[in-house]
């Protein structure tokens, strides 16, 4: 390498060659010149290895199943697009009729919502408690994936769930009661996203705290309720509503034990 070639291959051309930005003629011309330029060839080889390594890194992500939360977000986007398309197809007249109808339906829905909220305040919020109990029954037996985000990433877990639920969450601790945090997950709920935190004691018994918006939020009322006990679902639990946000603490424990845990949670929120 004591002698530089008469016409060294410029670096920009090496990048273009490497990144497949050239047509066959340009490629052949550069490859000819590269044969005379060992230094440029070596650079190109190093970059090629780097490129291969980068493409190999996280290659597995391409074949992983797409997380349900992302599928749901994509579904929303496609739905919105469909609506826009239909809007154009119908034209102004039909669209305004649709708008009027839609508004009517929407306000109807709102009224239903506040009726449901009233009901929820007066009667046990069956739906919410049922969802909490179901989520408990589904995820508590999981050995390998009981949670989406483990307690090792506690800060991220709280940040992430707060963002998804649209309100700052606090992570209650039950260590004094002998339960350590396992982690949490995001779940779909009737009123938008819900979150589940899972705790486990030394004997491996698990309890879950399920939280999410209540229908009461729709009516704008910052309704709060006292503790209520429910043993209807697959697992008993205490639930309560605080400022339009509902909580359910579930576990296969006795009623006093559950109440003690629920109170511990309540005092930390």
């Amino acid at each position: 390498m004591d002698k530089r070639p008469a016409r060294p291959v410029p670096e920009a051309e090496l990048h273009a060659l490497l990144d497949g930005q050239l047509d066959a003629g340009e490629r052949a011309a550069i490859e000819d010149r590269l044969a005379q330029d060992p230094q440029a060839s070596a650079t190109l080889q190093a970059w090629q290895r780097q490129r291969d390594a980068l493409r190999h890194l996280h290659e597995d992500v391409l074949s992983e199943p797409v997380p349900p939360s992302l599928l749901a977000a994509a579904g929303q986007a496609q739905h919105a697009h469909l609506q826009v398309q239909q809007w154009w197809r119908w034209g102004g007249m039909a669209a305004s009729v649709a708008l009027a109808l839609g508004l009517g339906w929407f306000t109807h829905g709102q009224q239903q919502g506040s009726a449901a909220a009233l009901l929820a305040r007066q009667q046990p919020a069956h739906e919410f408690v049922h969802q909490a109990a179901l989520a408990h029954a589904v995820y508590v037996p999981e050995i390998r994936h009981p949670v989406e985000v483990s307690s090792a990433q506690e800060e991220h877990l709280v940040h992430w769930l707060s963002k998804r639920l649209g309100r700052p969450l606090k992570l209650p601790r039950l260590n004094e009661q002998g339960y350590e945090l396992v982690g949490g997950r995001l779940l779909p709920g009737d009123e938008g996203a819900s979150a589940q935190f899972m705790y486990q004691n030394a004997r491996g018994e698990r309890v879950t705290l399920y939280l999410g918006s209540t229908p009461a939020k729709v009516s704008g009322g910052g309704a709060s309720t006292e503790f209520r006990y429910s043993a209807d679902g697959p697992v008993p639990g205490f639930y309560w509503v605080e400022e339009g946000f509902a909580y359910a603490l579930s576990g296969t424990l006795t009623r006093p034990q559950l109440l003690q845990l629920a109170q511990a949670v309540y005092h930390q929120l």
């Binding site: 996280h58 992500v61 992983e64 994509a74 579904g75 986007a77 496609q78």
Partner: peptide, 20 residues
């Protein structure tokens, strides 16, 4: 239009975001 076109891009978006 179905969801396919958008969903088809998710793996590539994830890989890029992961490396980023």
């Amino acid at each position: 239009m179905n969801r396919q076109p958008l969903i088809a891009h998710i793996p590539a978006l994830r890989r890029y975001a992961r490396a980023l």
